[in-house]
Amino acid sequence: MATEAKGEETGGLVFHPLDQFIVKPLFGDGPIHWYTPTNVTLWMFLAVLAVILVFVVGSRGRAVIPSRMQSVGELIYGFTYKMVEDVAGKDAVKFFPYIITLFIFILFSNFLGLLPMSFATTSHIAVTAVLAAAVFLTVTIVGFVKNGTAFLGLFWVSSAPMALRPILAVIELISYFVRPVSHSIRLGGNIMAGHAVIKVFAGFAAIAAISPVSVLAISAIYGLEVLVAGIQAYVFTILTCVYLKDALHPSH
């Protein structure tokens, strides 16, 4: 393995596009236990701090005419509320705090991850898989609690011809269980891909002849990544809403 890694460094270029994702302990070099404060801890703590700053400190005035910070909070609140209501239905509103927690955590982590020298917590499969698994479990449990066995009607497409229904049921079942996989890898992969691409272009900046191009490309991709950070948070949340709608109203 080490030789393969060295193989990339031929030609004077040093690419370590994935080094930015290494989980390191904050203090010392000890082994990483489950409780060790790591850079994951730091950046998640910063995300919590940002959330508190925007949503608690920003809205402490309770002003009818909002300050800037308060209107940001209200904007996110209204946006998410409308999304839950429109996509998942009126009776999904009681899941709104749960969904906005996911949305805000992903949004703030994505944007914090875009800071130079930062650590993108949402680029890790471990993190996104837990988020997606939480959504998957919630949706499945809510589906069975709300609808009982009628929830299985989600897989039995009653509008299809009888002969096709078992085949469709298998396909629906597979697609149902692929959901958390694609849900988590979409988010983690997008963030990881963007950061890795920026790192690769940063590696090219070492060559003087193409460094201006490289810097321009980094700027352009950074702009794209800002867009992706917002869109992936939005997509994760809206897919959660779509899955929740399936759980609450399983009939196609």
């Binding site: 989980v23 990483i32 236990h33 489950w34 409780y35 060790t36 790591t38 994951v40 801890t41 998640m44 703590f45 995300a47 919590v48 959330v51 508190i52 949503f55 608690v56 705090p97 749960y98 906005i100 927690t101 996911l102 805000i104 955590f105 917590t121 890790h124 471990a126 993190v127 837990v130 988020l131 939480a134």
Partner: peptide, 18 residues
Amino acid sequence: PNQIFWLVVTLVVIYFVL
């Protein structure tokens, strides 16, 4: 385990703050 632990802590904190 480390990431999942801190993620769960973060999510719970954000959930309660919100």
